[in-house]
Nucleic acid binder design. Structure first.
Length: 280
DNA sequence: AAGACAGTCAACCGCCTACTG
DNA sequence: CCAGTAGGCGGTTGACTGTCT
């Protein structure tokens, strides 16, 4: 069939669930060649899918390093914190959860955390606190609390561009010293999954840079902001988790390295950058 | 046993933005 | 500056699975 408007042949792409064979083709192709332009991947990999579908399948399922396991309490806690701050910015939240995708975080929020939140509404002080915070456009109470808790966060310094695009009240929060999210290059993580020692393939200077960038990334959200947020995340979590399961969880100040799990240096706190998948 | 219902999650859709010629 | 294209993102859908009656 030919599209009259553009004179290009219309390809009927396959839709629906991916078969193991399709997964294998896509995985093999990308690990061998990188993705380059996603629109050209299906044809080159011998798939009847469109580029977007391939990209999504790779990012959400095939990409090395994904966990595919249940969310831990710690991960749920981080999601709660970040959602309070960022709203439905699933990709940004997922950046702080190594091995998790935005789709996974979104689904988990919608199917688990949101319900838990609803469940404890009325039975926890958090509910009323959250409501009172959210009910005020611009969230002055939250802003005030954050101001009191951190001199790194200055609302008065918020660029207008940030304020004007706020889908949630919290979007107006400007975190000072916001460093750009560091990227992991394809070449950096690929060896981890091919069974090779990363140190053999990554130059010393690259690894040093990676570490430095990790540190930078920890400033995306200031420790103090997270400390503040811990106050009502604690209430939330304790509202639905059995104390025995939650097991003596101490909600005092935690270094950001701990919050974001920097013990896992390979991924933690780093943004996997898919843009760098370029054909050699 | 089987149908109804609810929950979960992979995948799609459509919008937006960035990039390129 | 503009149009076309590709990629990224969040919302939504629908297939599949488990549980209930």
């Amino acid at each position: 069939m030919v599209c009259k408007a553009c004179e290009k042949p219309k390809v009927s792409y396959k839709k629906g669930l991916w078969s193991p064979d399709e997964d294998q083709r896509l995985r093999d192709f990308i690990l061998k060649h990188g993705h380059g332009r996603w629109s050209s991947v299906p044809a080159r990999a011998g798939l009847q899918r469109n580029g977007k579908s391939c990209r999504l399948r790779w990012i959400n399922y095939l990409r090395p390093g994904l966990k595919h396991s249940d969310f831990t309490l710690e991960e749920e806690r981080i999601v709660m914190k970040l959602h309070t701050i960022l709203g439905n910015k699933w990709s940004q939240i997922a950046m702080h959860l190594p091995g998790r995708t935005d789709n996974e975080v979104k689904n988990h929020w919608n199917t688990h955390l949101k319900k838990k939140l609803v469940k404890i509404e009325g039975s926890s002080p958090h509910a009323s606190m959250t409501k009172s915070l959210e009910s005020d456009n611009g969230c002055p109470k939250l802003e005030k609390l954050i101001d009191e808790n951190s001199n790194q966060i200055s609302l008065s310094e918020s660029p207008d561009s940030l304020k004007s695009v706020s889908p949630t009240p919290y979007r107006s929060i400007h975190v000072a010293n916001h460093a750009p999210s560091p990227k992991i290059l394809f070449a950096d993580w690929l060896p981890m999954f091919s069974g090779n020692d990363q140190s053999l393939s990554a130059p010393e200077s690259d690894r040093v840079n990676c570490q430095q960038e990790s540190t930078l990334n920890s400033e995306v959200l200031s420790p103090k902001l997270l400390q503040f947020d811990t106050i009502f995340t604690e209430v939330f979590l304790h509202g639905f988790e059995d104390a025995r399961i939650y097991g003596g969880f101490k909600l005092q100040f935690e270094p950001v390295e701990q919050i974001f799990g920097f013990h896992d240096q390979a991924y933690t706190g780093l943004e996997l950058n898919h843009d760098v998948f370029v054909n050699p």
